[in-house]
Nucleic acid binder design. Structure first.
Length: 489
RNA sequence: GGCCCAUUAGUCUAAUCGGUUAGGACGCAGGCCUCUCAAGCCUGUGGAACGGGUUCGAAUCCCGUAUGGGCCA
């Protein structure tokens, strides 16, 4: 008699909806459905600086688009609400208090400066722990008095000083960590907000989560969580750490190196069925080696036994191939409706009309003038790029494009005015004529020499797609032989 | 730097307990089909990180090394 399965995903609303979130959501969803359990959506918005309601809405919307429906969440409610951590802070404070009472945690009065100094010393002494436990030695009644007088403090976990903590990962077996290697993790920040570790454990317990299915990046913090479960006297859930999606260079998937926004894939016309199917192929395989299947098929065959632990590279080519399968198999009327709702949506067209109306006589010219705005993998005219600026060495052009890519990723606000200002600065620092740089970027981002004003165009194409094209262009140019030798014909 | 996880072609992966000519898919190349281009079909390309063991026999089990990654600092 096992407890009924309850699983969750816990995204942080700090940006565009991420493919990694969709991946973990899919696996949780499949496990829940397969076992007749409940799939819960919890919003981890305890980072007050970075969390936004816009991002939360976008994440919910993207998951709905994929069809990964949840049984409990901030929008649909449920018996364990609220499902937004920012609305549960009283619970975390109460639980932190319990831990302090039991001696499993302690208040730390060190200022940020003191903590930094301690870290510095620890590093100099080649110790691994960041914090040396100074405040752990503050006597209990003194600590109480200082807390009562509102002295700013955090609450830290009192990690066991010796021995090791072992837990069982369902996919990897027993994993052990030496306790003296582990930091006294901050559980409650001085502003009274919890850190991930506390909030996560408290919520997982209070929400009756039976299986924590999450990405591998959390494996190393699991022993701290286990220590917390023990301190509370709670039964820990089953831990399942999924492999991490990777960039082509095998680093953890990131927007610097890959389009990771679900909104990007939606906008260029990836069908949700294809996206799910593709994600299901990463790290999991069907018993009969089928590669094209529905979500229901996946749920039916899903098994942890069939998960492969090597971190899979997110390969756009295979996604596009899969998507083509769905496009061709779809009822034409349905397909037409999908096109109208995505790439030809009124919203998309309205965004583009101001940019091209002066360049069009008859409306029929519209598609030709705008195709590159939504193309998922625009063919790059390498020769055009090489010839973009006279006397330009491909190597230098590649370098410039990489610099533009950097700028693009760093601008706080992705709008035309900001982009222009930053790119003029960049041109100056490279000692390039602005026009030369702009032409190079124009060709890389649009494949054409003649376009609407560059910065408005870059905004309309969208940051993920522009980033991807600049990256591809820089790479293509990097492979072209130097300017002296004629580049391949 | 410390700890932890992983490792089958360029990429995603299969092979229930060790015995297979290491299978499939994407990509790439060629061909067929065809008014073109796609699609579809066919063919080809290319792989066990390395070194030791255990065993009659190792991709598979064990140890070490290397490499990749993550987390902490």
């Amino acid at each position: 008699m096992n407890d009924p399965v309850r699983v969750r995903i816990a995204p942080s609303p700090t940006g565009d909806p991420h493919v990694g979130t969709a991946y973990v959501a899919l696996m949780n969803y499949a496990f829940a459905r397969k076992n007749g359990g409940r799939f819960i959506l919890r919003i981890e918005d305890t980072d007050r600086e970075r969390s936004t309601v816009t991002s939360e809405a976008a994440i919910l919307d993207a998951l709905r688009w994929l069809g990964l429906s949840w049984d409990e969440g901030p929008d649909v409610g449920g018996p364990c609400g609220p499902y937004r951590q920012s609305e549960r802070t009283a619970l975390y404070r109460e639980h932190a208090r319990i831990l302090v009472e039991r001696g499993a945690a302690y208040p730390c009065f060190c200022t940020p400066e003191q903590v930094a100094a301690i870290r510095e010393r620890q590093r100099a002494a080649k110790r691994n722990k960041g914090y040396d436990g100074t405040c752990r030695r503050v006597a209990a009644d003194e600590a109480r008095r200082r807390m009562a007088s509102d002295e700013p403090h955090t609450i830290r976990l009192a990690m066991p000083l010796d021995g090791e903590t072992t837990f069982h990962d369902h996919l990897r077996g027993d994993v052990s960590y030496a306790n003296d290697q582990m930091d006294d993790q901050v559980l409650l920040k001085s502003d009274g907000f919890p850190t991930y570790h506390l909030a996560n454990v408290v919520d997982d317990h209070l929400m009756g989560i039976t299986h924590v299915i999450r990405a591998e990046e959390w494996l190393n913090s699991t022993p701290k969580h286990v220590v917390l479960y023990r301190a509370f006297g709670w039964k820990p859930p089953v831990f399942v750490h999924l492999p991490l999606l990777r960039n082509a260079d095998r680093s953890k998937i990131s927007k610097r190196k890959n389009p990771v926004s679900l909104d990007f894939y939606r906008r260029v016309g990836i069908l949700p069925e294809a996206m799910l199917n593709f994600l299901a192929l990463l790290g999991h395989s069907m018993p009969d080696e089928r590669e094209v299947f529905t979500l229901d098929d996946f749920v039916r065959e899903f098994s942890f036994e069939r998960i492969h632990l090597g971190g899979p590279v997110f390969d756009l080519d295979k996604l596009l191939w899969l998507n083509g399968n769905y496009v061709r198999a779809m009822d034409p009327k349905e397909l037409a409706r999908r096109i109208r709702d995505t790439v030809f949506s009124l919203e998309n067209i309205e965004a583009l009309v101001p940019l091209i109306r002066e360049r069009v006589d008859a409306l029929g010219e519209f598609p030709e003038k705008t195709w590159y705005f939504t193309h998922p993998k625009m063919p790059l005219p390498v020769q055009e790029l090489v010839g973009a600026v006279q006397g330009l060495a491909p190597k230098d052009a590649a370098k410039a494009l990489k610099a533009v890519h950097e700028v693009l990723n760093e601008v706080p606000s992705y709008d035309a005015a900001t982009l222009e200002a930053r790119m003029r600065d960049l041109a100056a620092s490279l000692s390039w004529k602005p026009g030369d740089l702009f032409m190079l970027v124009r060709i890389a981002a649009t494949g054409r020499r003649a376009t609407p004003p560059l910065f408005e165009t870059l905004v309309a194409i969208g940051r993920p797609a522009v980033a991807q094209r600049l990256r591809a262009a820089a790479e293509a140019l990097g492979q072209v032989r130097g300017s002296g030798e004629r580049a391949g014909r």
